[in-house]
Amino acid sequence: MAKKEYAFYPGCSSQKGASASNYLTSVNAMCDKLDVTITEIPDWNCCGASIGYAEGGELPRLALSARNFALAEKHMPGKEMVATCAACWLAQREVKERIDHSEVLLKETNEALAAAGLQYQGTTPIRHMVEVLIEDLGYDALKQPVVKPLEGIKFAGYVGCQTNRPFGIDGESFENPVYLDKLVETVGGEAVPYDQKVTCCGGALAFSEPEKSQKQIRDIVESAYDHGAEMIVTPCPLCQANVEIYQSEINKKHGTKLNMPVLYYSQLMTVAYGGTAKEAGLDGHLIRAKRLEDITKK
C-alpha cells in the first residue's frame, strides 16, 4: 500500500491531559499499522466548535478555522488536512465552504488573517479520519492488518450528529449511515441493529442543560442494551465523553443500571491489529471495556 501523509488537526480534546487523549493514542497506533503518517499542523488553534457562536459571532469564528488552513497551506503545502474530532472537522469544513463561496467573506477573513501575517488560499481540503480510512484506504485495506478479530463482541454503532449531518461520510444516508457498522465488521466484530444511531446526545448542552441532555443519553444507552450490544462505538470525542460519563449520574437519579463501555472506532481497530491495551487507550475509560482488554492479552 502506498504510504499516505496528511496534515493533522488534533483539536483541543485530543491534547495531553484532555478527555480524548486516549482517542489520539489509539489513532496514532492505528495509523502506524496502516502506514498512514499524520503530522501535526504547527501552532494550530481551536476551531471554536459549534458552541463558539454565542460570543464569537461570525467573522472571528471564520478567522479561527481559516488560520488553521493557512498554517497547513504555508507549512505543509499540497497535503490534505485531517481531523479526528467530529466537531473540529465540521467547523473547519463549514468555514471553508462559506469563505470559498463568498468573495466578501473571503476578503474579510484574509484581512483578519493578515493581522497574524497569514493568508488563506483555499487549496487544502479538510477530511475526517473516518473518510481517510473508508474513502482513501478502503475496507479491504483496513481488513488486512487484522490479527485478532473481535469475534463474538456485539457493538452498537453510535454515529451521532456531526460526522453525519449536514455533510455525511462517503455519501451515506442521514437516517441510516452504515460506515461505522461496516468498520466494526471489518475488524471481526458484530454490529447490532440500533435505532438510536443518529440521535443527538445533547452535545455541548450536556453541561448547560444536564437534565435534558441526560434524557437523550439514557435513550442512546438503553437502546444499545435493548439491541443486545455489549459496547457502544463512536467517531466523536464529545459523544464518547457524554455517553460514557453521565451513565453513573443517570443511574443515581433514576435507579437504572447503565454500565456500557463507549469506545472509539480507532480503539477497536488498534486492538484487532494486535495493539496493546495501552496503545489502544483502553486505560482511559471509566467504564472499562473488559472483553477488549482480554483480547489484547491473548
Binding site: 483541543c12 480534546s13 478527555s19 481551536c46 458552541i51 464569537g56 455541548a204 453541561f207 448547560s208
Partner: peptide, 19 residues
Amino acid sequence: TATLFWNNLIKKGRVNELT
C-alpha cells in the same frame, strides 16, 4: 457556558477541553 468557552479559547488559542 458558551461565553466562558469562547473567552477561554481566545485567551490562549486553544481550549483545554471540549468545553
